[in-house]
Simulated assay, not measured.
Amino acid sequence: MSDPVELGCELLEHCEDEALELSAAVDRLETVTTDPHLTREILDTAEKRGIITREDGLIRPRRGAFVSFESEVVTKEGEFSCRRCGAGLSTGHFIRFESGEHGPFGSSCVRKVTGRE
């Protein structure tokens, strides 16, 4: 199992949004952990590392490290449940980060988690 703090920081680092409401950032981090203490630790660690800035309820990711859907998102066939919405999946989309693989997600949820939609 991947370290949830590292995985959460990488998820924020690869976010394509210019800015997110805190609630939207937490929604994405809930795909890593639903523990509020870990979520806070992820946000604090990401801020200390310069991955994000926080101001007036907004999270602003440092832009530049986007997920490549061609090389960093892999699909696997099987019986899965989406980590974001809970839907049943026969094809799971997994994001490959340095700290580990994150998923499974459905085809639209993987885009939402990375900020493509």
Score class of each variant (00 low, 15 high):
S2P: 14
V5L: 05
E6R: 14
E6V: 08
L7C: 05
C9V: 15
L11W: 03
L11F: 06
L11H: 07
L11T: 01
E13N: 11
E13S: 10
E13L: 12
C15S: 14
E16A: 14
E18Y: 10
E21I: 00
L22A: 13
S23I: 10
S23H: 09
A25C: 12
V26G: 01
D27F: 08
R28W: 01
V32G: 01
V32C: 05
V32H: 02
T33H: 07
T34C: 01
T34K: 12
D35I: 07
D35W: 01
P36S: 14
L38N: 06
T39H: 04
R40D: 08
E41Q: 13
I42D: 03
T45E: 14
R49N: 08
R49Y: 03
R49V: 01
I51G: 02
R54C: 04
R54P: 03
L58C: 04
I59G: 00
R60P: 00
R63K: 14
G64E: 07
V67Y: 00
E70T: 06
S71L: 07
V74H: 03
V74K: 06
V74F: 01
E79D: 13
E79C: 08
F80S: 01
C82D: 07
C82L: 10
R83G: 00
G86W: 07
G86N: 06
G86E: 07
G88I: 10
S90D: 13
S90N: 11
G92H: 02
I95E: 08
R96V: 11
F97A: 06
E98K: 14
E101Q: 15
H102W: 15
P104L: 06
P104R: 04
F105L: 07
G106Q: 01
S107M: 03
S108I: 11
V110A: 00
G115L: 05
G115S: 09
R116E: 11
E117L: 12
E117N: 12
E117P: 01
